[in-house]
C-alpha cells in the first residue's frame, strides 16, 4: 500500500488554481523526487499533505489516513523540513530541537546528539544568530533524530555547503535502508538523480511526468561532440539531431536518447577520430519540457 497517495488534488486560492488534479503516490521505502520550477505547486502540495492547507477537492492520504482530518495522528510518524526555516530568535538551536522532538511525541531521542555532531551544529547559540544554513541544520537534526516513517523535505539543502549536503544524502540513504519513505522536493538536480527512485515533475499545478529516472530518459537528450576524418554530410537531416554547430570537422550537437543508435551508425561511416558525450541530466529533461509544452495561462 502506498504511504502517500493523492488523487485529483486541487487547490484554488480565490480564482487562482494553484493545483489542478495532482495525482501522486509514494511507496514504502521509496525516495520520491518532486521537482518543478518556483511557483509550480510543490510547496502547496506539501502543505496540503501536512494538513496546513485544505484541498479544494480531491483526496490526500498518508499512511491510509486523511491528511487534513487526521493530521495530528499522521504527524506522530512524519518529519518535515521546510525550505525556509523560521525559528524563534530567542530560543537556542538545542531548545528548538528538543521542542520539535517532544511535540512530535517521540520520548527517546538517542540520535539527537549524534545528529548534532554529524551536521556540526552548535546547539547553544540563539536562533537569531544562525545563518540560513544553520537554521536548516536545526530542522534537519530534529527531523533525522526522529524515527519517522515518512520524511517530507522541501528544498532542504539550499543553504548547506557541499560537505553538509553529503551528510544530508547519507541521512536520506539511512532512512531508505531502514524502510522509511521520503518526499524530496529539490532544485538541485544532481541530488535528485543521486537519491531518488522515482521522480515527479510538476508544472503550473499539474503533474506533467512521473516515473523512474530510466523511464524518463526517453525525454532527455545526450550532448555529443564528434570529430571525424572526413567531413560529414548534413547531420540535421537525421531524425533526433538538434542544434548542430560546426568547427571544421568537429561538430557539436544534441541527440534524442531514443535515436542515438541510428545517429552513431551514420557518424561512424566518416571515420571517427574523437567522440565526447555528456550524459543526460534532469536539467535537460526539465528544459525539454519547457520547450515542448508551451505554458497555458492559468486561473480564471
Amino acid at each position: 500500500m502506498a504511504v502517500v497517495e493523492t488523487r485529483n488534488l486541487t487547490k484554488k486560492f480565490g480564482t487562482f488554481s494553484a493545483l489542478s488534479g495532482v495525482d501522486l503516490s509514494v511507496d514504502k521505502g521509496e525516495v520520491y523526487g518532486f521537482i518543478g520550477p518556483n511557483g509550480a505547486g510543490k510547496s502547496t502540495t506539501i502543505r496540503i499533505l501536512l494538513g496546513l492547507l485544505k484541498a479544494s477537492s480531491g483526496d490526500a492520504a498518508i499512511f491510509g489516513m486523511d491528511a487534513w482530518r487526521d493530521a495530528v495522528e499522521i504527524h506522530k510518524r512524519l518529519a518535515y523540513v521546510p525550505g525556509d526555516v523560521n525559528l524563534w530568535p530567542n530560543l537556542t538551536g538545542g531548545e528548538v530541537i528538543d521542542l520539535f522532538l517532544k511535540l512530535r511525541g517521540s520520548e527517546k531521542n538517542s540520535k539527537r546528539d549524534e545528529m548534532i555532531e554529524r551536521f556540526q551544529l552548535d546547539p547553544t547559540k540563539k536562533c537569531r544568530t544562525y545563518s540560513k544554513g544553520n537554521r536548516q541544520k536545526v530542522a534537519l537534526v530534529s527531523a533525522f533524530s526522529a524515527q519517522a516513517d515518512l520524511y517530507i523535505l522541501d528544498e532542504p539543502t539550499s543553504g548547506l555547503d557541499p560537505l553538509m549536503e553529503k551528510v544530508f544524502q547519507e541521512c536520506v540513504m539511512d532512512v531508505k535502508e531502514a524502510g522509511g519513505s521520503v518526499i524530496l522536493s529539490s532544485h538541485i538536480l544532481s541530488e535528485v538523480e543521486k537519491l531518488c527512485d522515482r521522480v515527479g515533475i510538476i508544472r503550473e499545478g499539474t503533474m506533467i511526468e512521473t516515473g523512474t529516472l530510466k523511464e524518463l530518459r526517453h525525454l532527455t537528450r545526450t550532448s555529443l561532440l564528434v570529430e571525424t576524418a572526413e567531413k560529414m554530410g548534413d547531420l540535421e537531416m537525421l531524425k533526433g539531431v538538434h542544434g548542430s554547430e560546426w568547427k571544421g570537422n568537429i561538430v557539436q550537437f544534441q541527440a534524442d536518447s531514443e535515436e542515438i543508435g541510428s545517429i552513431m551508425e551514420y557518424v561512424s561511416r566518416f571515420g571517427v577520430i574523437r567522440i565526447e558525450s555528456a550524459p543526460p541530466t534532469l536539467e535537460d529533461l526539465f528544459m525539454r519540457h519547457y520547450e515542448t509544452q508551451p505554458s497555458q495561462p492559468r486561473g480564471k
Binding site: L50, L52, L78, D84, N86, R104, G105
Partner: peptide
C-alpha cells in the same frame, strides 16, 4: 505570519 506556526502544525499538535 512569520511562518513559525507551520513548525508547530507539522508536529503532532492540533
Amino acid at each position: 505570519k512569520k511562518g513559525r506556526a507551520e513548525n508547530i502544525y507539522s508536529l503532532a499538535i492540533s
